[in-house]
Design a binder for these strands. Structure first.
Lengths: 145, 145
DNA sequence: AATAAAGTCTATTTAAATAGTAGTCTTTTT
DNA sequence: AAAAAGACTACTATTTAAATAGACTTTATT
């Protein structure tokens, strides 16, 4: 399951993506608008900023805005920032590989390949979906979330 | 991430799949062999049994064995028993649908479709992989887990 | 019939991870 | 100088996963 952190991150990016014509948005406003606990959102935005996805400005009139085009921000990358690995087992992770500790012998474990396939299938979808796609779908009247 | 419960379940099924020519295997033996905490394994086996995947026999000479052919036990079904939904968001779940609570308005949420696609991609892999496949791969010398 | 060897079932405890909060510091504008 | 923002770190609470405990039931053996 996706963590709330990730859901909040996506929501924030979508909101900022829609706000792109306007001046930067303050954390407090964003938190209220998206119903996200303010201090929690603060941390999330910081992470996204430190990863280069957001631009922030301090002081009066400051706030947050996207640092990239919404079409260039892919959900995979966001998930990796907020939730870590995409794979369901650490040993099948591309970016966060770790040895599985239930597994005494990597050579004789029969499930890794399956979960690498799952990972690849997931990656296929998530690395093609951008924040812009999410925004586009919202207005489409499709049933979502 | 897969829970330990699920990993243990898969391990147990694999071990029982290999034990199919022999008399039923006792929980204690299985726990020792697979290095799974005994009482925890006990619960897991019960779940698998109640779902129809295992046969158990009480009393002296009793124990557990597969109740289906290993080729007919698919990982999807096991995951659903031990971890619940396959989807990453409740509103994208086929078997465990729930409304997402961060989402005030299902109509205007842009991420559901993406996570339905992810779910379908995952399902595609997991519903084609059986315990027999896992066993077959073990002996293949492929690097796993 | 008695005993021992198993599994069954439910409740509880512990530990880890997630979610959320608090507070102080820094930068920028007015 | 003051006020309005974000930056950063530490802490607390809540939830979920993992593990443990114990009393009960069934079956085989003697």
């Amino acid at each position: 399951m996706l963590s709330k952190k990730t859901k909040y991150a996506i929501k924030a990016l979508v909101a900022l993506g829609k706000n792109v014509e306007n001046p930067p948005m303050q954390i407090v406003r964003l938190a209220e608008q998206e119903m996200i606990p303010r201090k929690f959102l603060e941390q999330i935005l910081l992470d996204l900023r430190n990863a280069g996805y957001l631009y922030s400005k301090k002081g009066a009139g400051g706030g947050y805005s996207l640092n990239k085009n919404a079409a260039d921000i892919y959900l995979v990358d966001i998930l990796r920032i907020t939730d870590g690995p995409i794979a369901m087992v650490p040993c099948a992770s591309l970016k966060f590989y770790r040895k599985c500790d239930e597994c005494h012998d990597e050579k004789t474990c029969g499930i890794r390949k399956t979960f690498i396939d799952v990972r690849d299938a997931t990656l296929e979808v998530l690395s093609k979906t951008s924040v812009a796609d999410v925004i586009a779908r919202e207005s489409n009247g499709e049933m979502m979330f």
